[in-house]
Design a protein around this nucleic acid. Structure first.
Length: 942
RNA sequence: GCCCAGAUGGCGGAAUUGGUAGACGCGUCAGACUCAAAAUCUGGUUUCCGCAAGGAAGUGCAGGUUCGAUUCCUGUUCUGGGCACCA
């Protein structure tokens, strides 16, 4: 009876589909468990073997938890809006809806091949109007909310309106002012003022507070893609997708006020189980810095500006300030420029404007700047210092102005050296005159009342003094910016608003979803408007009302999909509250680290806002996150002698001048090239000649086979390197169960590793060896009902414990190893007993579900194995550790040494001695002192 | 430049709390079966010395703590990832 995986797997996949065994109920007495994969973007290329790595891991864990008696939610869906489908449409004229649908079908077929236990009845697609109805709805909740800094949570905009009506905005400052109230030179207004404002002014003011808001902002404009990109979609000044240049451009864009949540996003990290490196990435992105804002009085010719405010994290260095630098875009620049410096400043401003993002990034170390002719006064010692402008100060961070302390800050130091500004030393010998020293551990000198104080202690002293004098305050800044939320794209969620008199108003909830209008013209307009601008009868509702021509970024649909799975078909709410409360947080979330910043932060933000508004009972979406590593490609290379069609084996390639070419990995067995396959691969190679590793050649070998060896290289799995391994092929050759186990066996789930097809044979052998515990090729059925021996029970129980421990800590590779050890040992013991095999089947089910179902049925069980209780191990079979130390039990040395050691502590059962100690003992030097630890281990002092 | 993670046989990787380093698998070598090959099975496989029993060295490098260190500490090199004028 042979192991016929294709028959078995087909049978059970059909059976599972027919009976719907993986559908899960929202109503159960069992405890819940929520295991989630990051849903895929259904790209045209289909899955390669790297994609299912996380899916296999989550499937094993979900199945394991199910055996453990949990009601497990394990859904899957598609992140189906997005750029590539639209780009594909532009290039090939196929509508994104059609190509997305086709891609989804491919993905689904590939996933079904692998035997996942998803509850497909809960599938979501972000491009489905029934789904994006609620994406739009949540967007409107953000639009209708503001962040109350006093309660530190989102509240309805209505509550802000009543505050304005009663007391103006005196105690609720504008979070990030972009707009000035008419007739006011500060943003403050009274309740009287508010009542006097017209509708449009009121709306503009409220816009300054809304969590989803419109703003004229510098955006990353990518001409080639015809769209705006988020900061995380721009890498080194070019677009992440396509590598096109990106420039700054002012546009009216939707933004999410994520900066208001910076502190909660930061502190929330302490409550969730993400890897340290991932938390670190998020912390860096949020970029919290503690410091102070300090006003410096200004002396300028025009005398318009009374003072300028700087932000510093090092107020302790205030007596080391030698100059001030403001950003070229700083709004006060024109007001302080002296007549004599005007021309030079104008020239510098033009230069700064002309600099593209790429240039600035590429020339980070270049020092530029221009003196304004104005002076600032150090508020603590009255010293006059020059005010410069320079592009190294950013308008968007802090106050857009800094105090220059050359002896303590590297950039300030270079600036001072470059422009020959005299440097004040406040840290004595810690400053060598050559480079700045940013230490906080020096004793201050030349620093007035701070002299003799440790710098890190002086920080608070200066902040205290500044606050006392009313010229500044303690301040926290964040690097993180608000998230740009508009894309000039077709294939995304339309914004559910209508503009009247240029003010956006939410459309009525009853009119949701605002459907994407059909269109066949996806090319960007090039003007900054989205392709939707061309659907004129959709955009212009009437003379005074129009729609937004942008769509939301892909992140929108992905920012809340994990909530939808709780209740995916609900048309009256994004999900029923009872279902949301039942399923709660995602217990385990598995996905790639490439989503560390954007997706995870937006998901956390949306969850927090929905929590604040009372729609959820938890504010962190993901309790635990596992980042699966990438599977790299293991490329194969051949070496063609230049200008010939002769290929030389890898070992001899240095004897010739060769060109290195990638060869399809399917044409290579290990590193040995299939010569005939290669010749057939491409016409140009049909008459290729070869020089083999032993120096013989195709022409002289006369059918005697020399070996042509390929070079190897680890790189990204990609079509252009011909190193893509399709899971379908692997499943076809070895079966889904082998594929699943091998993916896990490759190494730790978090680690990136190359795919090595050769190694799968080992797992395949294991699976067949496991099968042979039940069936013999000649004898047929070999399993029996004899009682198990102690030795067999020991093997079984050790395996139960080991696998359970390993799965709990997501160490699937060692769990697979444990199975291999177990099967090897049972084979050695010639054990085919039901009493051992049955529990083992249950144990193996999460890893190899098809095989285990089949054998379970063949053992005569009428029920499915999927809901069997997970076997419990009996500790009595584990007493003797699997490690055999040169050890003693019950106080007697169990070595061959003829020597007695009566232990004085009778409760000690086991002592552990290192080899060297035993050796010394043998040489007649017994231990002097014995240290008892945990009643078990004994440390010995020789 | 700054931050984070890592470095173990020919290869992927084990070693869970400081306790026999190299589990498990690949590869390879030898053997069995076979006319032969494939498949399968058995045994060996860190390095060096030795016929063997056995001995010595050994977890990137240099130190340290400890009876004992892949594991903890200090310094250093390299690799991978993140951030990059954020004051």
């Amino acid at each position: 009876m042979e192991y016929n995986f294709s028959e078995i797997e087909k049978k059970w996949q059909e059976q599972w589909k027919r009976s719907g065994v993986y559908a899960v109920s929202n109503d159960s007495d069992k405890p819940k468990f929520y295991v989630l994969d990051m849903f895929p973007y259904p790209s045209g290329a289909g899955l390669h073997v790297g994609h299912p790595l996380g899916y296999v891991a989550s499937d094993i864990y979900a199945r394991y938890k199910r055996l453990k008696g949990f009601n497990v939610l394990h859904p899957m869906g598609y992140d189906a809006f997005g750029l590539p489908a639209e780009q594909y449409a532009i290039d090939h004229g196929i509508h994104p809806a059609a190509s997305t649908e086709a891609n989804i079908n491919t993905f689904r077929r590939q996933m079904d091949n692998i035997g996942f236990s998803y509850d497909w009845s809960r599938e979501v697609r972000t491009c489905d109007p029934h789904y994006y109805k609620w994406t739009q709805w949540i967007f409107l909740q953000l639009f209708d909310s503001w962040f109350n800094r006093k309660t530190r949570k989102a509240e309805r905009i209505g509550s802000l309106v009543s505050i304005f009506e009663n007391e103006g905005n005196a105690s609720y400052e504008v979070p990030n002012p972009k707009f000035r109230v008419p007739g006011k030179n500060s943003s403050g207004f009274s309740s009287q003022d508010w009542k006097g404002f017209d509708e449009k002014t009121r709306q503009l003011i409220l816009m300054e507070y809304r969590l989803a808001y419109l703003a004229y902002t510098d955006v990353n404009w990518c001409e080639a893609l015809g769209t705006v990109l988020a900061n995380d979609e721009v890498i080194n000044g070019v677009s992440e997708r396509g590598g096109f240049p990106v420039v700054k451009k002012k546009m009216r864009q939707w933004s999410l006020r994520i900066t208001e949540y910076a502190e909660r996003l930061l502190s929330g990290l302490d409550t969730i189980d993400f890897s340290d490196s991932l938390k670190e990435i998020q912390r860096n992105w949020i970029g919290k810095s503690l410091g102070a804002e300090i006003d410096f009085p200004v002396k300028s010719e025009k005398n318009i500006v009374k003072s300028m405010r700087v932000f510093t994290t090092r107020p302790d260095t205030i007596f080391g300030v030698d100059f001030m630098v403001v950003a070229p875009e700083h709004e006060m620049v024109q007001d302080i420029v002296a007549a004599g410096s005007k021309a030079a400043i104008e020239e510098y401003l033009l230069y700064a404007q002309s600099r593209s993002e790429i240039e600035r990034m590429a020339e980070v170390k270049r020092i530029t700047g221009c003196f304004t002719g104005a002076y600032a006064v150090n508020p603590l010692n009255g010293r006059e210092i020059p005010i410069w402008i320079s592009e190294y100060v950013l308008a968007g961070y802090g106050t857009g102005a800094i105090m220059g302390v050359p002896c303590g800050d590297e950039r300030d130091h270079k600036f001072a050296k470059h422009f020959a500004i005299p440097i004040t030393n406040i840290i004595g010998e810690h400053y060598n005159g050559e480079e700045a020293n940013p230490t906080k551990d020096a004793i201050l000198q030349n620093s007035d009342f701070l002299n003799g104080m440790l710098m890190r202690d002086a920080i608070d002293v200066v902040i205290g003094r500044v606050e006392e004098l009313g010229i500044g305050k303690r301040q926290i800044n964040y690097k993180m910016r608000d998230a740009g939320w508009s894309r000039q794209r077709y294939w995304g969620e339309p914004f559910p608003v209508i503009y009247k008199d240029d003010v956006p108003y939410p459309i009525d909830e009853k009119e949701l979803p605002l459907r994407l209008p059909p269109s066949d013209d996806f090319k960007p307009s090039g003007t900054g408007e989205g392709p939707l601008a061309k659907v004129k009868d959709w955009v212009y509702i009437n003379e005074s009302e129009r729609r937004d021509t942008n769509t939301m970024p892909t992140h929108a649909g992905a920012a809340w999909y994990f909530l939808r799975y709780a209740d995916p078909h609900n048309d009256n709410a994004f999900a029923d509250r009872k279902a949301l409360d039942y399923w709660g947080q995602v217990d385990v979330y598995i996905g790639g680290a490439e989503h560390a910043v954007a997706h995870l932060l937006y998901s956390r933000l949306w969850t927090k806002v929905l929590f604040d508004l009372g729609y959820l009972s938890f504010e962190e979406p993901f309790k635990k996150l596992i980042n699966q590593g990438k599977i790299g490609g293991d490329s194969r290379l051949v070496y063609r002698i230049r200008n010939t069609n002769t290929f030389v084996s890898a070992g001899l390639k240095n004897d010739y001048q060769t060109d290195e070419l990638h060869v399809d990995v399917t044409l290579v067995n290990g590193i040995e090239l299939d010569i005939e396959g290669f010749r057939k691969w491409r016409d140009e190679y049909s008459d290729a000649e070869f020089i083999f590793e032993d120096g013989s050649t195709t022409s002289e070998s006369n059918g005697k086979d020399g070996r042509y060896l390929c070079g190897t290289r680890l790189e990204k799995m990609s079509k252009r390197y011909f190193n893509v391994v399709n899971p379908d092929d692997v499943v076809k050759k070895y079966g889904a169960d082998t594929f699943r186990m091998y993916e896990m066996f490759l190494g730790p789930i978090e680690m990136s590793k190359p795919w090595d097809t050769k190694g799968i044979e080992g797992v395949y052998r294991f699976i067949r060896k496991f099968w042979r515990l039940f069936y013999d090729e000649q004898k047929g059925k070999v399993w029996n009902d004899a009682p198990a021996t102690n030795a067999e029970l020991k093997v079984l129980n050790r395996t139960i414990k080991k696998v359970e421990d390993d799965v709990e800590r997501f160490s699937f590779n060692t769990a697979v190893s444990a199975f291999m050890v177990c099967v090897n040992e049972l084979t050695d013991l010639n054990c085919h007993k039901r009493a051992v095999l049955e529990p083992l089947l249950v144990l193996l089910t999460p890893f190899a579900p098809h095989l285990c179902e089949e054998l379970w049925q063949r053992l005569g069980n009428a029920t499915t194995i999927l809901d069997q209780p997970y076997p419990r191990y009996d500790p009595q079979y584990l007493v003797e550790s699997s490690k055999d130390y040169p050890v003693s039990i019950n106080g007697k040395l169990r070595t061959q040494i003829n020597m007695d050691l009566e232990l004085s502590q009778p409760e000690v059962e086991e002592i552990v001695l290192s080899n060297s100690i035993v050796q010394k003992w043998l040489e007649g030097k017994p231990p002097k002192k014995i240290i008892y630890v945990k009643n078990k281990m004994v440390n010995v002092v020789v």
